[in-house]
Design a protein around this nucleic acid. Structure first.
Lengths: 253, 253
DNA sequence: AATGAGCGTTGCAGTGAATGCAACACTCCT
DNA sequence: AGGAGTGTTGCATTCACTGCAACGCTCATT
């Protein structure tokens, strides 16, 4: 809506790919160098971009700090964290918490596996939306038309042979997930990694977040992992209860 | 420099404090509601802010994702991480990695203590700049005038009785740190937590990052923690060597 | 039901802020 | 020295942003 701001903000994802100099930024924005310079200067004043010693620009520290605050303000995270830790203590595997927002699913918390073999993922990283178990739960709860529209719009990268190949398959999977109230990803993202996930619901019954337990084949088989499902669901329900205010929040934890 | 962008970016820290509605944003920016609306819309289109169900705005998922990418692009982090993990395995305490950028010091990596008592800190969070051991190292390396200017500009919150009280004390501490090549924080941020830190230098000899080991009194005394100093310095030097390209980067780790 | 307050939203006219240009400063090659 | 490639600045033009005022909507209140 606002041309100037639009252009300025377009610079950020561009720099996220890697540092760029003034000319490159101007080119990719399709504006004159001087225009790009002034936009970058404004971003710089706000700490959103940083000028490194070779004069090129990259994303700045303030951006990271802001994102940090943004995450801390997500109160579901606060509530869920101790539960995730407890679950991790019980099963030993990696535990994730994710939320959906505007066509993206994001990990917002993680408790690392206690086993030496860990999976790669990072808090703040967008999830592989077409295959991740948590993504399925979050998308399955969208209103019908929104879900369809999103499914059509997405890319369906074939991470592995078991990745969701196309919108139809995805929508069928979502229907199933919606039906059963939990989800899995059995090697759909990385060949040797399986996940089981359960939804966390708010006071209105909508799915507010999703959590999962992930483990590589070398540690437990998919079948063994599935035996954890009741535990995962109980944990998710406990978080739901607290989040929706059914259980009074306990100060001492 | 650019009014519109300036205003738009000013909205972000404002929302970082917590969700706000249109009127509040407009007031705090000192602009008309319609102006604020259009700025927010643009931010929204870029996923930088999110409109929650009660219509209020908060920071959005894209911001978090961008910050994530920004951190992954910091190659010093990539290089340092395995060293930090190894150090953690050796001593068991919390290990931090921090960088300085435009008047701020930011934690960019962290390996959690293996002891049950952990300290609070988060990747991406700005460091308590006047007391943290890593901050001292990073600031001690600034050019004289810049260091003075910054020292004058900072706030000096008295987190504890041992916090740095004022610019003079801070500058003296920085001089000492610069001299000895390592730094400590003995209860200056939290009464019961001590840190030892060492600098990581780049090819040009400047301090590019700093790392620290932190532990609460209940686990080890300050004196015991200080015995780890040689180990911390060796680790920092190893990272420095790799970062500055003196040691060829080993693919197999 | 009707009233009104408190929001967010939209069209519009005026104007000031952003734009692109061209000239300049600077560094790094050859 | 010359020249190519940067980033930077001043300036005139104009177009995009602004503030206003009117509208629509939801919620309380009577």
């Amino acid at each position: 809506m606002s041309q100037t701001v639009d252009r300025a903000l377009s610079i950020l994802p561009l720099l996220a790919e890697g540092p760029a100099d003034l000319g490159q930024v101007a080119d990719r924005l399709g504006v004159h160098k001087s225009t790009a310079l002034r936009l970058l200067r404004t971003l710089h004043d706000h700490g959103m971009v940083y000028r490194q010693s070779d004069q090129r620009y990259r994303l700045g520290a303030r951006l990271i700090a802001l994102a940090q605050e943004a995450m801390e303000n997500l109160d579901i995270r606060e509530i869920a964290h101790p539960h995730l830790v407890r679950l991790n203590e019980q099963c030993g595997h990696t535990v994730h918490l994710a939320v959906y927002e505007e066509d993206e699913v994001l990990y917002i918390d993680k408790v690392e596996s206690r086993y030496p073999v860990r999976m790669y993922s990072r808090i703040g990283k967008p999830v592989a939306i077409t295959v991740a178990a948590v993504a399925k739960l979050l998308l399955a709860d969208l209103p019908e038309h929104e879900r369809r529209a999103l499914a059509e719009k997405l890319d369906y990268p074939m991470y592995t042979a078991r990745s969701t190949p196309h919108p139809d398959a995805f929508l069928r999977e979502l229907a199933k997930v919606r039906e059963q109230g939990w989800a899995t990803d059995l090697g759909g993202h990385e060949e040797s990694i399986n996940c089981v996930a359960a939804p966390i619901t708010g006071a209105d019954g909508r799915v507010a977040a999703a959590m999962s337990v992930s483990a590589p084949n070398v540690v437990v088989t998919a079948d063994e992992l599935l035996t954890l499902l009741p535990l995962v669901r109980r944990t998710a329900d406990a978080i739901s209860g607290e989040y929706s205010g059914r259980n009074p929040t306990k100060d001492a934890e």
